[in-house]
Amino acid sequence: MLIIKCPYCGERDHSEFSYGGEAHIIRPKQPTELSDDQWAEYLFMRKNIKGIQYERWNHSHGCRRWFNMARDTSNDKIHSVYKIGEKPSN
């Protein structure tokens, strides 16, 4: 069970949140110019990292805002929570 500190609402049970996958994957600026390989990379390939992962969460049963989180996937420890557009503090 994770306790997540929403940057807007404070600490809440993780059942209030939805997971949004790996963060900082930038949507291609010129989608029409992408090769199939580049599309595959953008759509499907993931770091799936064992260690500190930067990921997106949505407070779907609260303020419904998106934010980012740095969490260690090997032990589920949350290292930092930061707003969209900000950089992680560690």
Binding site: G21, A40, E41, F44, M45, R46, K47, N48, I49, K50, T73
Partner: peptide, 18 residues
Amino acid sequence: GHSSVIANMAGLKLPLES
């Protein structure tokens, strides 16, 4: 579950989530 960890060692990315 650790396939991506091994793939990363070889410099590959896989379309997996564990």
